[in-house]
Amino acid sequence: MKLNIKTILIVDDEPRTRQGIKQTLEVWAAGSYRIETANNGVEALELLQHEVIHLLITDVRMPEVSGLDLIRSLNRHARRPQIIVISGYAEFQYVQQALQLGAVNYLLKPLDKKELLEVVVEALKREEEQQRHEKLEKLVDHKLAELDPGNNMSIGEPVREALLYLEQHLHETLTMADMAQRLHLNASYFSVLFKDQVGLPFSEYLSRLRVQRAKELLVHTRLSVGEIAEKVGYQTDKYFIKVFKTQEDLSPSRYRQQMTGTSDEIQ
């Protein structure tokens, strides 16, 4: 079973419409997407609480919990799916509200299969783009990204030289005292100078740089966590995992799984 298979949820209280959409999408998807259905908004809310839904296709008018109520509820979800709404011609005012609430497109009944598939493909492309953006956000350390030694005139030559050395020797044992000695500076003076010009203490900058490099290796290589720990300058993978979890709130293996859909664990 694929770890990264995506889910499409169809919500409609009319069985023929619901099953018709499901059958059309199942033939089109050929197993590359999981197609789920809900008979009404209440069932859909339950599913949305326990599953990650990538695309929601919902009727706008349903008893108890309408499609509009369903869309509003998604504001409380950390991961909001792409949304397509279904309506009759007489309900277009509901469609307008749904679009204002974040739906990306709509379909009018009776549904045309070709139009359905075109709209679904477009929504899934949007979802992929959103996911790509989220992954880039997770990959980048914004404090490091804000620092551009080449164009930052407030960074003097000694600190600039230190930053370059750290980039090139990240796999080695690096301490502030050793770096100060290499630059022929007093350690206390170098410590103050570094923090003042970089905006981070030397130890925090080094830690962030190592975790940033580790994130890149986790995503772009199949090196083990232990091998990556060594490449970014940690003597033991146990300590590396501890530092990584402190910065990212999850383990290196879990990070790799979230970013690539693969796992280091035996299933």
Rank of each mutant, 00 (worst) to 15 (best):
L117Y: 03
V119H: 05
R72N: 05
V225S: 09
R222A: 12
V243W: 07
D59F: 05
Y89E: 14
D69I: 01
L217D: 08
E118F: 07
L48M: 14
E14N: 15
E14M: 12
Y234P: 02
Y234I: 03
V192E: 15
M179W: 02
H171F: 07
Q235K: 14
A229L: 04
L136C: 06
E137T: 09
W28I: 02
D112V: 00
E161D: 09
D196K: 15
A98T: 11
I266D: 15
L56P: 02
T37L: 10
A123K: 05
L144M: 10
Y106T: 09
L99I: 15
K242N: 09
A214H: 07
Q23T: 11
A145P: 10
F244G: 01
P252V: 04
L206P: 09
L101P: 00
L70G: 05
E91A: 05
K109A: 04
L107C: 03
L116K: 03
V198G: 07
R213T: 05
Y94E: 05
Q197Y: 04
I53V: 11
R208F: 12
T246G: 12
V121F: 13
H54S: 03
Q97F: 00
A30T: 10
E91C: 01
G31H: 09
K113Q: 14
L206N: 10
G31F: 13
L164D: 11
I84N: 07
V95M: 02
Q49K: 15
D196M: 11
S188L: 08
M179C: 10
K125N: 10
H171Y: 11
D69M: 05
K238S: 12
F244P: 00
R126A: 04
L47P: 02
D237S: 11
D69S: 07
I86R: 04
L136V: 08
L108I: 15
S251F: 05
T37G: 03
T24V: 11
A98I: 00
A123F: 06
I5V: 12
R222W: 05
I84R: 10
W28N: 01
N39H: 14
L250P: 09
A90K: 12
H142G: 01
K109V: 09
R210Q: 12
Q100H: 13
L48I: 07
D178C: 02
V60Q: 00
V85T: 15
E167T: 06
L139S: 08
L200K: 15
K114S: 14
L139R: 11
Q197C: 07
D237C: 01
K2T: 14
T17F: 01
K231V: 00
D59H: 03
S263K: 06
L25H: 04
A44R: 00
A103C: 06
V65F: 12
G88Q: 02
E26N: 12
E146A: 14
Q96S: 14
E43L: 10
V225N: 08
K114V: 15
V232E: 05
R213L: 07
L101G: 02
P158T: 00
L170G: 05
L108A: 08
N151G: 14
G199Q: 06
G41N: 08
L45P: 03
F190I: 07
N4G: 06
L193M: 08
T175W: 02
E14I: 12
P81V: 04
A145D: 11
L147N: 00
L108F: 11
L166C: 12
Q19N: 13
Y189T: 09
E227A: 13
V243P: 10
L116W: 02
V121R: 15
K125R: 13
S87Q: 08
A180I: 01
V85K: 03
E51T: 10
R80P: 03
R256I: 00
